[in-house]
Structures are given as C-alpha cells and as structure tokens.
C-alpha cells in the first residue's frame, strides 16, 4: 500500500472511533472532550471506568447510532474504542 492509501485507511478507522467517542460522551454525559478518550484505552474497570449500567446504555446507543445489535456479544467488544469500531464497522476488522 502507498502511504496515501494507508492514511485513507487510518482515517476511516479514526472517523468511526471519533463517532463512537462522541456517542459515549453524549450518552453517558461525561465531562470530557470526546478526543480525550484514546482509541486503545480500556473502557471498563480500568480506563473509562464504565459499569454494567453504562453497558446497557451503550447497547441501546450503538443500535440507534450504528444499527448494530451487540446484546449477545462478549465483553471483549468493549475492550477499547478501537475494538468497538471493529464491531460497528466490520470493514475495519483486523485479523492479527
């Protein structure tokens, strides 16, 4: 891939991540700028310190915002914003 193609691919993921961060901040009424949340930071326990009630709120928000139902998913999908991006925009999914 050329560097321009790599930049375009990165931009697509960063755009989805930004959309998720804005959704989290808005739905959970957090007092931080969305971009303060990093793509890789943990969301539960450590990190953003969300709890199980927040998860329920996010399930609903994700379905409304992205049309993706994650109700039966494992907790791993909330491992980070970037991991969540893989779920709401499957074109991004990485096989590592």
């Amino acid at each position: 891939m050329t560097i321009d193609e790599l930049r375009a691919k990165a931009a697509e993921r960063q755009q989805t991540c930004t959309q998720i961060k804005k959704m989290i901040v808005s739905r959970l009424d957090l007092e931080i700028e969305p971009d303060w949340i990093t793509d890789d930071q943990p969301l539960f326990g450590r990190g953003l310190e969300l709890d199980s009630l927040d998860v329920l709120e996010l399930y609903v928000a994700i379905e409304a915002e992205f049309g993706v139902a994650l109700y039966d998913s494992e907790m791993a999908v909330f491992g980070s914003v970037s991991r969540l991006a893989d779920e709401v925009n499957p074109q991004l999914k990485v096989t590592a």
């Binding site: 790599l6 691919k9 990165a10 993921r13 991540c17 793509d39 943990p42 791993a76 491992g79 991006a85």
Partner: peptide, 26 residues
C-alpha cells in the same frame, strides 16, 4: 498521528508488521 490506527501494514527492520486493536489478548 494520522497513521496511529489499527489494521495498517508497516515495515520494521525489513519485516512486515500489522498494527493492532487493543487489547491484543483478551
């Protein structure tokens, strides 16, 4: 910063590497 994202192919010391989504191990 514009390249700090998962799913990209980079080269390190002549070898291809792939950037990852955290956590790397669940």
């Amino acid at each position: 910063a514009e390249l700090a994202a998962a799913g990209l192919e980079f080269t390190v010391e002549g070898a291809g590497v792939t950037t990852l989504t955290s956590p790397y191990i669940v």
